[in-house]
Simulated scan of single mutants.
Amino acid sequence: MPIDATEPYDDQNIFAKILRDEIPSRRVYEDAYAIAFHDIAPVAPTHILVIPRGAYVSWDDFSARASDVEIAGFVRAVGTVARAAGLVVPGYRLLANAGPHGGQEVPHLHVHLFAGQPLGPMLAGAPAA
């Protein structure tokens, strides 16, 4: 069920529990600003999630409240994960859902990295680019 990205941060969400090591994950990267791990229900051959360590509900929340250092660290982590996973060639897709209309299901900012096969148009019914 999509969540409202304007709600206060819920420290019992699944990603907060992963950050606290209360729930196991298959981590592929971690630093002071972010962690990355394989999605437990992948929708592409490669499906990695990258989340900031801070308590941010959505991209909007993160961009409004995070420090410049946190923002730079998170963005660099996303690029580092993509390069380390060998996704740059032939390409990959980044997706960050925000709020109920965007389909956000976990109230912690996260970026999906999809790769490993042609992904087709970004939205169903949209012409291929």
Rank of each mutant, 00 (worst) to 15 (best):
P2A: 12
P2Y: 04
I3A: 13
D4S: 11
D4W: 10
A5E: 03
A5G: 03
T6M: 04
P8A: 12
Y9N: 09
D11K: 15
D11M: 10
D11L: 10
N13G: 13
N13R: 10
A16V: 05
A16H: 06
K17S: 14
I18E: 03
L19G: 01
L19K: 09
R20N: 14
R20T: 05
D21H: 14
E22K: 13
P24V: 13
S25N: 11
V28Y: 08
A32H: 05
A34D: 01
A34I: 04
I35L: 04
F37C: 00
H38Q: 01
H38K: 02
D39T: 01
A41T: 09
V43D: 04
V43M: 10
V43Q: 11
A44T: 09
P45M: 11
P45Y: 04
P45S: 09
P45C: 10
T46E: 09
T46F: 00
H47L: 07
L49M: 13
V50L: 07
V50D: 03
P52K: 00
G54E: 00
Y56R: 05
S58M: 02
W59M: 12
W59K: 07
W59S: 09
D60Y: 11
D61I: 06
D61W: 14
R65I: 03
S67L: 11
V69F: 05
V69H: 07
V75D: 02
G79H: 13
A82L: 04
R83Q: 14
R83N: 12
R83Y: 10
A84M: 06
A84W: 02
G86H: 02
L87M: 07
L87K: 05
L87G: 05
P90H: 01
G91T: 03
Y92I: 12
Y92C: 13
L94H: 05
N97E: 14
N97V: 13
N97P: 11
A98Q: 14
P100W: 05
E105Q: 14
E105Y: 10
V106S: 08
P107M: 14
L109R: 08
H110F: 02
V111C: 11
H112A: 01
L113M: 08
A115S: 13
G116P: 13
G116N: 08
Q117I: 09
P118A: 08
L119I: 02
G120A: 11
P121G: 15
P121W: 04
M122K: 08
L123N: 07
L123Q: 08
P127A: 15
A128K: 07
